[in-house]
Design a protein around this nucleic acid. Structure first.
Lengths: 209, 209
DNA sequence: TTTTTATTACCTGATATCAGGTAAAAGCAG
DNA sequence: CTGCTTTTACCTGATATCAGGTAATAAAAA
């Protein structure tokens, strides 16, 4: 079987580079190249596509939303995201929105080739550097961040569920004033302005649940 | 090379089941079986371990935290998470904390085998059902959830950064009262009690960024 | 073109949060 | 056993949020 492949990138140079790399691959046939996601959406309505390689940073519509939209209508199309630099949360978001893999553009020809074949085979794939990015926080971020105490975690969790100070006090059989103290301590510990920023911070750092 | 493997699960029956499955594999040698994460942490300080298969729902310390702790000191150990049922966010959290793969316990022998070999080979692997779980929201959740309008998204983003109504108004060159209206509309749209719950909701559903 | 949705804006009052200071009892670690 | 951290608790005042209602303009969809 030959996989009909589309490349989407707003840099023509990158398109031709990738096209060159892929031209060697037997069962990958590049049928179209686009510089915009909107045009791609039109195209896949009228044409069969098996594989899409797309830049994540696109004008108008970003890669994550584009991927989501495509997968809703065409779940069988294999979509691999690409970018020059990246960060953990972006990669995870892309995968959560249906992406089948993520490759950094500095990946070697072999990496590209392997990732593409494995993705077609139904796996979720990452290029080497992406793998290290995904499990990065272990060495840097997390060591600097102080942990929540048990009680603080309880309270933060209830805060994330929309509970007020009074409701939390009732839930945990504490005084209103005690919960207030904990709240203040948590905000000070992480130098946050208010609960909104706090919850965002805690969730992004996986410190709740 | 033979991979020294440890199984951690609080159900003895599951341990023996997995041990049985793995006993056929050539270069996988099970050196220990634990029912608790704490004991495992002690063990790996004094012994060489190459591969860990761990249940995610463990007493005392959960699998995600256990994985994080192990990877901080021993990044080279390959860790695969397992559970009977699972949800998207849990799998993503496990991977973000250094996990090399995730398998549902109902996976076939072949799936187990393939995932383990690929993980050892440096890949991040998921069993079939996990893959479907990861990219699920496309069909169910997301269609029910109304989208944020552009302006609402701007405001929600600034809220998640700890900005007050007045600061947001200044940032976006709007009236304080306008921002207040948007805030109320967003809360009503998703039936949230306050910003804390809202931010938690939006982040969990990838509706910010 | 009409209708709907989005964006902008104002007013009021009740309630909640945030920041300041203070402090005692319990639990853990050196 | 003696510090250190955690958890508990109280007081006050300034500021912010939330909920109620109302409404005009602009933009997009029907």
């Amino acid at each position: 079987m030959v996989y009909k492949t589309v490349i989407v990138d707003d840099h023509p140079i990158v398109i031709s580079g990738i096209a060159g790399l892929l031209s060697d691959l037997e069962n990958i046939k590049i049928v179209e190249k686009f510089e915009s996601g909107i045009v791609l959406l039109d195209y896949i309505e009228d044409n069969t596509v098996d594989l899409i390689l797309m830049d994540i940073f696109l004008p108008v519509i970003n890669g994550v939303d584009l991927c989501k939209t495509i997968k809703q209508k065409h779940p069988k199309i294999v979509i691999i995201g690409m970018s020059s630099q990246s960060e953990r949360s972006l990669v995870m978001q892309f995968i959560q929105n249906g992406g089948n893999g993520y490759i950094l553009k500095n990946a070697s020809f072999d990496e590209f080739k392997n990732c593409i074949y494995k993705a077609i085979d139904g796996e979720i794939v990452f290029s080497e550097e992406v793998k290290t990015i995904i499990s990065q926080p272990l060495s840097e971020e997390l060591e600097r961040i102080p942990a929540l105490s048990r009680r603080e975690r309880d309270i933060a969790l209830l805060l994330s569920q929309g509970k007020s100070t009074q409701e939390i006090a009732d839930d945990l059989f504490l005084s209103f004033l005690t919960v207030q103290t904990h709240r203040r301590n948590i905000l000070q510990k992480y130098k946050m302005k208010n609960v909104a920023e706090l919850i965002a911070f805690l969730l992004k750092n996986n410190m709740l649940n």
